[in-house]
Simulated assay, not measured.
Amino acid sequence: MLTRFFLAIAAMAIVVVSSNYLVSIPVDVQLGMFDLKEILTWGAFTYPFAFLVTDLTNRHFGPKSTRIVVLVGFSLAVYLSLKLANPRIAVASGSAFLIAQLLDVSIFDRLRNGVWWQAPLISSGIASVIDTAIFFTLAFAPAFVGIDQFFNQADTSLGFGVPFLSVGAEVPLYISLAAGDMLVKMLMVFALLAPFNLLRRVIADRQVVSNAAA
């Protein structure tokens, strides 16, 4: 049991480390009229795995233990952001991660006894929206430049205009990036239902374990 718990922590650590690195790398690809570097970062493809780890941990260990895994991930997110980026990014990354993951834990636990796909789909979907909104707003919106000023850092705001999702009306870059990030995260939420369904067959449900032990 303890080994599985540390495996969950290790899995979360891998996701957080890779996502914090990849979120700074735009997808520098041109697909017809779409310039993806104004829409996406590679972190959008890796971060949703954090919700997969959280949901499987919640299913096996319950919300109390899952919150410990989330707090470890939160600590890593803040530490790595401080090392790899500026304090404003660290504040945005840590805040978004902690709030979204704890929300995911609560929603999943409420829905866990329904149809198998309902809890991971709804909890990860809602949490992804919250995570994206908090991160991109705190990290890049000009309204929060005061965070940079507080830490005496260069302004990280991305308020200059670009076509929305590379084809629409002009909007601040951080809004286009947030929208592209959200689209990919939603696709990943659906895609990760397949590994969740596979892994739930080999990772025991805590209720099944409790009933067997009774």
Results as ranks from 00 to 15, higher is better:
residue 5 F to C: 03
residue 6 F to C: 07
residue 6 F to Q: 11
residue 10 A to E: 03
residue 10 A to D: 03
residue 12 M to L: 12
residue 13 A to I: 01
residue 16 V to C: 07
residue 17 V to Q: 05
residue 18 S to W: 01
residue 19 S to K: 04
residue 19 S to Q: 01
residue 19 S to G: 10
residue 21 Y to G: 06
residue 22 L to K: 00
residue 24 S to R: 09
residue 24 S to P: 04
residue 30 Q to P: 00
residue 30 Q to T: 15
residue 31 L to R: 02
residue 32 G to F: 07
residue 35 D to M: 12
residue 37 K to C: 00
residue 38 E to V: 09
residue 41 T to Y: 03
residue 41 T to C: 13
residue 41 T to Q: 10
residue 41 T to H: 07
residue 43 G to D: 07
residue 44 A to V: 08
residue 44 A to T: 05
residue 44 A to G: 08
residue 45 F to T: 15
residue 45 F to K: 13
residue 56 L to G: 12
residue 60 H to Q: 12
residue 63 P to I: 01
residue 64 K to L: 11
residue 66 T to E: 13
residue 73 G to F: 01
residue 74 F to C: 09
residue 75 S to M: 12
residue 75 S to N: 00
residue 75 S to G: 15
residue 77 A to T: 06
residue 78 V to I: 04
residue 82 L to T: 05
residue 83 K to D: 09
residue 88 R to C: 09
residue 91 V to Y: 04
residue 91 V to L: 08
residue 93 S to N: 14
residue 96 A to N: 04
residue 97 F to K: 03
residue 99 I to R: 05
residue 102 L to P: 03
residue 102 L to S: 04
residue 105 V to W: 06
residue 106 S to L: 11
residue 109 D to N: 15
residue 110 R to D: 03
residue 111 L to M: 01
residue 114 G to Y: 08
residue 115 V to P: 05
residue 116 W to V: 15
residue 117 W to S: 00
residue 119 A to I: 01
residue 119 A to L: 06
residue 120 P to Y: 01
residue 123 S to C: 04
residue 128 S to D: 04
residue 129 V to Q: 02
residue 129 V to K: 02
residue 129 V to N: 04
residue 131 D to L: 15
residue 133 A to H: 09
residue 134 I to C: 13
residue 135 F to S: 00
residue 137 T to A: 14
residue 141 A to F: 15
residue 143 A to G: 12
residue 144 F to Y: 04
residue 144 F to C: 12
residue 144 F to R: 06
residue 147 I to G: 04
residue 148 D to L: 08
residue 151 F to H: 03
residue 153 Q to N: 14
residue 154 A to M: 13
residue 157 S to A: 14
residue 157 S to R: 12
residue 157 S to K: 12
residue 166 S to A: 08
residue 168 G to Q: 00
residue 170 E to I: 14
residue 176 S to G: 06
residue 176 S to F: 10
residue 178 A to C: 07
residue 180 G to W: 06
residue 180 G to M: 05
residue 182 M to L: 15
residue 183 L to D: 01
residue 185 K to A: 00
residue 187 L to R: 00
residue 192 L to C: 02
residue 193 L to F: 03
residue 193 L to D: 00
residue 196 F to Q: 01
residue 200 R to W: 02
residue 202 V to G: 10
residue 203 I to D: 05
residue 204 A to G: 11
residue 206 R to T: 01
residue 206 R to P: 06
residue 208 V to P: 08
residue 209 V to G: 09
residue 210 S to C: 11
residue 212 A to D: 14
residue 214 A to D: 13
